[in-house]
Nucleic acid binder design. Structure first.
Lengths: 241, 241
DNA sequence: CAATCTCATTGACATAAATCAATGACTGAC
DNA sequence: GTCAGTCATTGATTTATGTCAATGAGATTG
């Protein structure tokens, strides 16, 4: 077995392909996409996948683990842009400038598929399904970012954290993982930074939600005990009824 | 002259084509795009271009005027998502769901180019430049939304409004309009809603900026007197030095 | 030209969340 | 095993911004 084979899982075999780039492609088309995907050594916790300002050549799909996207401002302050879970794509924000506009760091050991952009551009002219999928993917990210904007601009700390937990829960469920019991891959600081809250506030809301029986938190382990209550807190419709 | 001719300005003639879809296309390609663009009667102030939940068939480019994108939540509260100026594209957030996920309303008399999505999809498989441009356009919107997220999550009222004014200034300049003297097409309420601030706060910050000699406001007319000061307030680099 | 609205501004007061500070629980290095 | 460092929690205090209330300036309509 070649060294690189250790990390190889073809798109066809990959359990996440329904969430990823190959979605809605035929088997043949999927093989074509599979042919351009590079699968490297997993990233260790704290390793960067890419950093702001570097040349954009590829975007990435997460196979396992978790990634934090962030930026550092003039004052050296970090700003967390988002978190990526298995089956999710990141790096598409760099197409326009051809330079990465954010940095991406592994929150835990993380396996990645690297997808060279120029090849996808070429392939997608040929494979109509792929082009349509790329448009949908980009469009979805815009929509999700707009939803986040509403969260950040107009919601209280409880609403932000309630929504954040429900969103994670939903994403885990889509990945065939438990939607009620999961491990937060990021630190409290990261959550606060992402939601525009002080760490202390995150901590306080967590304890408050726990006291009210909505969740059970122990370090990074979270259990959702009362989804309905959490939805009320979040002032959002039940994501999965 | 046919009735519809009153509104017809081809992409070739349009002064905004450098900012719009035809950007980076050859003359021939531009004519092909031009062929699918529909140019209707201008929208009157208050008229909707589309509303949330309706079927998505086209996206739109603004020729003149200004559009507010917004959503109404369960409680009937409006949430302003953004403002579109001449040369800008809107509606791309609906590709993924095939339904509009926001509503768009004219803030003043507004001329629009309607661009049927399915035709662009088809054309862009054929015209590589167009596909590349669409990817860049979508990618840019993601990046801009992420910048807005940082503004909403981590900045003070003064920073938000400073940044908002500088951003408008820059956009007007790109449109060959004055970057120092312009008219806000939206109400204070809309600005506050968009930035996650109470109207009163918007008003107070405007007066404060005026007292400090940064700007001159009179109703919707704004003059930027001290760009440098505004940049300091906004804690952002000079957009155009 | 009133009369009615909507929109903007300003002041007084309330409050959610930030900041400051202290402590404890883990984690990893040597 | 111990020591330093990071991370999480909790309490006390401050503050930026929201909410409530009043007024005035324009715009729109009959």
């Amino acid at each position: 077995m070649k060294k690189s084979d250790k990390f190889v899982v073809s798109c066809q075999q990959c359990g996440l392909n329904a969430l990823c780039i190959p979605y809605s492609l035929t088997h043949e088309e999927m093989d074509e996409v599979d042919g351009v995907v590079k699968r490297g050594k997993p990233l260790q916790r704290g390793e960067n996948l890419f950093t702001t300002g570097t040349t954009f050549n590829s975007f990435y799909a997460i196979r396992s683990g978790a990634i934090k996207s962030y930026n550092i401002d003039e004052n050296g302050e970090e700003h967390v842009i988002g978190f990526s879970l298995p089956g999710e794509i990141l790096g598409l924000d760099a197409i326009d400038t051809a330079k990465h506009v954010s940095s991406a760091k592994a929150l835990e050991t993380t396996s990645i598929c690297e997808i060279p952009y120029s090849q996808v551009e070429t392939l997608s002219s040929k494979i109509h399904n792929l082009q349509a999928h790329m448009y949908r993917l980009l469009s979805r990210e815009i929509r999700e970012d707009q939803e986040l904007q509403m969260l950040l601009g107009k919601k209280t700390a409880e609403e932000k954290i309630g929504t954040f937990l429900l969103n994670l829960s939903l994403r885990y469920e889509q990945r065939k993982l438990s939607s009620t019991l999961f491990r937060l891959p990021m630190a409290r600081t990261d959550i606060g930074n992402y939601l525009g809250l002080a760490v202390e506030t995150v901590s306080r809301v967590f304890t408050r939600l726990q006291c009210n029986g909505g969740i059970k938190v122990e370090g990074k382990e979270v259990e959702i005990l009362d989804r309905r209550y959490l939805c009320e807190i979040a002032h959002s419709a039940l994501p999965n009824p």
